[in-house]
Nucleic acid binder design. Sequence first.
DNA 1: TAATATATGCGAATTATTTGCATTAGATAA
DNA 2: TTATCTAATGCAAATAATTCGCATATATTA
Lengths: 144, 144
Amino acid sequence: MRVTCKYEYVNNSIEEFKEQLRKVGLRITPARLVILTLLQNHSKPLEVRSVLRLLKASAPDQATVYRALSSLTTCGLVKAITLKSGIVSYEIANLPHHHHLICERCGYVEDVETCCESPRPRVASFTIVNDHRLEFSGICNNCA
Amino acid sequence: MRVTCKYEYVNNSIEEFKEQLRKVGLRITPARLVILTLLQNHSKPLEVRSVLRLLKASAPDQATVYRALSSLTTCGLVKAITLKSGIVSYEIANLPHHHHLICERCGYVEDVETCCESPRPRVASFTIVNDHRLEFSGICNNCA
DNA sequence: TAATATATGCGAATTATTTGCATTAGATAA
DNA sequence: TTATCTAATGCAAATAATTCGCATATATTA
């Protein structure tokens, strides 16, 4: 399906995104759709900077991008992951469960299915433990 | 041992820190020692902002703090960890192997010993995998 | 289609981080 | 020790990143 509006995008999951937005009570807006689409089309997590750069042309305003990423993350449609480097990146939330392997030199990120088989920690000061993130790091072939 | 110099600090590991700095080839300076001491005295990882705030009085200049955290991290004396929230925090590197459990509401961090028992991922695009970080998140008692 | 509340764009304000450069102070060797 | 060399610091200023206020536009709902 091709949709032309203020910003242009090509996407097959538009209806899905709309449904998700509806479900979490966020309005369906071009800015949110274009950002969801962008994240979906990139298999790798994207930093804000990249999102801004990739959308630059007729893109939503930068404040809008920040606000959209924030609301989408809060509502769980997008995941914010933070790599060892300290840079926050965003990815579509409903990907199959996976983790990341990141190159310490160049920042290249690879998804890995390896998961954490250990039990959830039991700590007196916490009531609920409901999520985990596992990140491996090393040196990619290019940098080695 | 009590050492008074341009900035003041109380510490029992000064000699250890000096030895570590020597080993990695960084000069032994008051700024580095005071930052290592601060990180050591806090059991929790600290963000740059907190480091700056806690040191404020007769502290090293902010540019110096950034530079020191950076060089200490590069040389491996300090670890930069990035929590789900996207905030980068720093902790002394030579703590026993552990991971973190963070409250999604308030950011409270607890160290946990639970580790990842799964095998290191084998991925064609990576030559070396040499580290991992595991982060659990949930709701702490205070927020629950 | 009208009413209303949310989202956007824009500019400006904040906040965070980095840089250049003159000066200070570790380290090293005589 | 002291002289020498180089890295580290402080300061001010530049840059980058993020947030905010507010008028306008737009999605939703009835």
